[in-house]
Design a protein around this nucleic acid. Structure first.
Length: 293
RNA sequence: GGCGAGGUAGCCAAGGUGGUCACGGCGACUGUCUGAAAAACAGUAGAUCUCAGUCCGACUCUGAGCCUCGCCA
């Protein structure tokens, strides 16, 4: 019997986690968050992190904000859970993390090479392109225009091309059910995001940011997560309070669109309207029958 | 009210002797994706305040109007 795997995906603010918590109570399961910002300890209010009362949510609070992070690291921390439960439930806003589990990322096993990265860091895009084309012209020609101009991706491709190719671990095959949550009404979605942002500010987002700033360098956090960069600008005086809210909201919305760009490409996602009053009953039935199939 | 400066995309903004004008940044939109993915990157769309005049031709020159800013009253 193949291992079952349930994924709940969708853009930010659609209630993925609370749905997953409810569903997890119906079946013997383990909950795993796939979210690249919620892995940081202490970044709770601004990232909208849930700490459910009566169930354990894995995959969050893995590292401190000053630690390096990658898909690989997250995957290492959660992969054992995948086989330890009859039903792992992945709750994910970060498409790449979900992909690491559903499809596998073979080259993930090739670790970063700090000295190579340091050496490549000052090179121009053109130099990096030439370098990669010399090492692996096939890989270079397969990259699309966007990636060919992306230094970070070029460096990584050179890193992979320079590495001794290991035997890529075979990905475990799953019987996967992917549920997607979204708002069908964009106006309602926007106003929902707006009240979430407001609630986070009222709930101590600014104090949380101040606390983080007292412990860590602002540069670490500033590029890192939506919300913090707006609050840091507000605390630094370059944004008014209302401009801070506006910029935060705009970032959340833009992010949700990038998430949808990713998720809408995944096939076999069963999409549901997240405000459907009968959502839970529908999904509970779907999941249960799929699980016992 | 007087004097001065100025009105170019949603915002900021460059320019030129009158010649398909229209740099760029932010934002917007669309997308990319095998170790930073709430990241990084790519592509697309969008403008000359109004009216009149000169001219083959006006965003550019002239006049009037409207509006904004500064100083003076």
């Amino acid at each position: 019997m193949t291992q079952k795997l349930l994924c709940i995906v969708g853009p930010t603010g659609t209630g993925k986690t609370s749905l997953a918590v409810d569903l997890s109570k119906q079946l013997p399961s383990v909950l795993i968050s796939a979210d690249s910002s919620q892995v940081y300890r202490g970044m709770d209010i601004v990232t909208g992190k849930d700490h459910p009362q009566d169930v354990i949510l894995h995959g969050i609070d893995l590292v401190s904000p000053s630690d390096p992070l990658s898909v690989s690291l997250w995957y290492q921390k959660v992969k054992d859970l995948l086989t330890k439960s009859p039903l792992p439930i992945i709750v994910g806003g970060t498409g790449l993390y979900v992909k690491a589990i559903t499809e596998g990322i073979p080259t993930m096993s090739i670790p970063p090479n700090p000295s190579l990265r340091a050496e490549l860091e000052p090179l121009s895009v053109l130099d990096l392109q030439l370098h990669l084309a010399g090492l692996n012209s096939k890989k270079f020609s397969e990259m699309n225009n966007s990636d060919k101009h992306n230094k970070r991706r070029l460096v990584r491709a050179i890193e992979i091309a320079s590495a001794i190719t290991p035997n890529f671990p075979k990905n475990i095959s799953h019987d996967t059910l992917i549920i997607g949550l979204k708002f069908n009404n964009q106006d309602r979605y926007l106003s929902n995001l707006k009240s979430r942002v407001k609630a986070r500010v009222e709930g101590g987002a600014i104090e949380e940011t101040k606390l983080l700033l007292s412990k860590y360098n602002a540069d670490l956090l500033s590029h890192r997560a939506i919300g913090y960069r707006s609050i840091i600008a507000y605390l630094g005086g370059s944004l008014t309070r209302s401009a801070m809210l506006t910029s935060w909201l705009a970032d959340e919305y833009a992010y949700s669109k990038r998430q949808m760009t990713w998720f809408s490409k995944i096939k076999n996602v069963k999409w549901y309207e997240c405000e459907d009053p009968h959502l839970f009953e529908k999904l509970a039935e779907l999941v249960t029958s799929w699980y016992h199939k």
